[in-house]
Amino acid sequence: MTNKKSIGGILLEIVSILCMVIILIPVVWMIAMSFKTEGQQISNTWQYFTPPYTLQNYVTIFQTSKVLTWMMNSLFVALIVTALVITISTMAAFALAKIRFRYSKFMYFFFLLGLMVPTEATIVPLFVTANRLGLIDTYLGLILPALAGSMNIIIMRAFFMGIPNDLIESATIDGANELHIFLQVILPLGRTVIVTIAIFTFIGNWNSYLWPYLAAMSEDLFTLPLGIPTFIGQYTQDKVLPMTINTIASVPIIIFFIVFEKQIVKGISLSGIKG
């Protein structure tokens, strides 16, 4: 019995490792290619991964492309969006969850409606609207529409509802007003959900494509997902430079993941249950 089980266990272990290898090969290949010399003929697959290596591609990329600008833009937009999403969504979710006001049910319903409006389906009028407001080709134009989704509020409200009212009442008796309650009770207790939503907002915006594609006109405003195809479009003949720029775009987010691994894993289950 135990013997049989362990054989099965070893088999599953091998399958797990095999899956891992298959899933990671493209990423490893990408990174390996970024260290290859331009123009090298590859006669068998093994040579993709073996020396000689060079750092020349990184030098070339940083010298000839605006990858640093794009990266800073991606980072800037993603960070600002994350900060603002957290600020305005926690505020709104707090009001919906813990302030007793008329129309609170109505507002909740009104925000629920927003879950059904995907950006993809309103992209054309959104472009016209943003244009009227003078937002096309500005940082604000990249940022503001990314703040308008109501999903975060719905998730946070559900979470905040779970915070016991006793805590709020005792704070009120101590003379705290809503701002104090928000800052000193809700935010600390809502840490988990806030961090989770922050991480997902960050990843989502770091990778966002469709809206920036329309809203950013000048190269100085491109984010990485826009800049990469523009850059690669100029190199049809060799994969080395495109792979280098792909690596440059991917490594920071992978490091980010390694640092926040626990939170991300926790966060996904949270969004799954409440989503």
Partner: peptide, 8 residues
């Protein structure tokens, strides 16, 4: 064309 249409 999109850029010109928005004055950019």
């Amino acid at each position: 064309m999109t850029a010109v249409s928005v004055g950019k």
